[in-house]
C-alpha cells in the first residue's frame, strides 16, 4: 500500500524537497572537505608552465544564463593568469560572453592593478561564427575588424603589436558551457595549428569531452563547479565555488535517494493480481 502511494507521489513534494536541500547550506554551512583531483591539477600546471609575459587568449564562450557556474570558473582562471604576469587577450564566440568577459576582466584588473592595452585587451564578440576563428589563423586583426570590444583600434594597444595571428599566443583557454566553445576552437584553430587548448566547462559536457581529453586534443579540462572549487583552493583564493559544494552535496544525496526510492517503489509496489 505504502509503495503504491509512493509511486503516485505528488511532484510538488519532490520539487519542494529539492529547494530545501539546496537552501539549507546557505544558512548552515557543512564545510565538507574537498580533495584535489589530477584533472584540476593538470589545468593548474598548464597555466603555471606558461612563461611570464607570454600572451594567451581566453575565450569566454558561455551564456548569461550559466553565470552561476561559469563566472567563478572564469574568474579563477583569469586570476591565476594575471597573478603569473601573463598577457591576456579576451574574446568571446557569443555576444553575451563578451559582456561577461568585460565585467570580470575589468573587475580583476582593477583589483590586481593590471592595465588595459598592455596587460590585457578585450576583442569582444565578432559575429560570423566559425568563419571568424578561421580568419584569426590568417590575420587576427582582420578577424576582429581591427577594433576591440569598445571600437578602439587595435593599433593603439602595445599588447597587440606582437599578436597578429592566432599562433602568436601561447595557448587558447576556453571557458564554455556548450556550443560554440571547445570543439569549434579544436576543429578550426588548435587542431590545424597544433596549439594547446585547455580551460573549463560545465559538468554536463565533461563525459562527452572525455574522448578529446584522452586523445590530448584538449590538454586539460576543469570539470564544472567541483573543478572550480578545487582550482580556487589551488590558487589559494576560496570563493563562490567552494561554498557551493555543500549545496551540491546535499542535493546529490537527495537525488540518489530519489533514484533508490523510485526503484524500490517500482519493485515493491503491490503487483496486479494476474501476476504481471
Amino acid at each position: 500500500m505504502f509503495w503504491d502511494k509512493m509511486q503516485k507521489i505528488n511532484k510538488y513534494y519532490i520539487y519542494a524537497l529539492l529547494v530545501i536541500a539546496l537552501v539549507i547550506p546557505m544558512f548552515v554551512p557543512l564545510g565538507l572537505p574537498i580533495s584535489i583531483t589530477a584533472d584540476t591539477r593538470k589545468v593548474y600546471d598548464l597555466m603555471e608552465k606558461i612563461p611570464p609575459g607570454s600572451p594567451i587568449l581566453m575565450s569566454f564562450d558561455y551564456t548569461a544564463n550559466a553565470v552561476a557556474e561559469m563566472d567563478p570558473m572564469a574568474t579563477a582562471l583569469l586570476k591565476q593568469a594575471f597573478k603569473r604576469g601573463l598577457k591576456v587577450v579576451l574574446f568571446s564566440q557569443g555576444d553575451q560572453g563578451a559582456v561577461l568577459a568585460q565585467k570580470i576582466g575589468d573587475d580583476l584588473a582593477g583589483k590586481m592593478k593590471k592595465n588595459y592595452g598592455t596587460d590585457y585587451v578585450h576583442l569582444g564578440y565578432k559575429p560570423g561564427g566559425t568563419v571568424v576563428l578561421r580568419r584569426m589563423v590568417e590575420d587576427l586583426w582582420d578577424a576582429a575588424a581591427n577594433v576591440d570590444m569598445n571600437g578602439k583600434p587595435l593599433s593603439s594597444f602595445p599588447l597587440m603589436q606582437n599578436i597578429k595571428k592566432i599562433t602568436d599566443v601561447k595557448a587558447i583557454v576556453v571557458i564554455s558551457n556548450g556550443s560554440p566553445g571547445f570543439v569549434e576552437w579544436l576543429n578550426y584553430v588548435t587542431g590545424p595549428q597544433k596549439m594547446p587548448l585547455f580551460g573549463g566547462t560545465v559538468s554536463v559536457m565533461v563525459p562527452g569531452y572525455m574522448p578529446y581529453v584522452q586523445s590530448g586534443q584538449f590538454a586539460g579540462l576543469l570539470q564544472g563547479s567541483r573543478g572550480t572549487a578545487e582550482y580556487e583552493l589551488l590558487i589559494k583564493e576560496p570563493g563562490k565555488a567552494v561554498s557551493a559544494q555543500d549545496s551540491q552535496s546535499l542535493s546529490h544525496l537527495y537525488l540518489v535517494t530519489l533514484l533508490v526510492l523510485g526503484n524500490l517503489g517500482y519493485f515493491l509496489r503491490k503487483k496486479p493480481a494476474d501476476g504481471r
Binding site: L32, S35, S203, R226, D246, Q248, L253, V256
Partner: peptide
C-alpha cells in the same frame, strides 16, 4: 553523482 560531490567521499 556521489563521486562528484564532496559528500560522496
Amino acid at each position: 553523482m556521489l563521486g562528484n560531490a564532496p559528500v560522496g567521499a
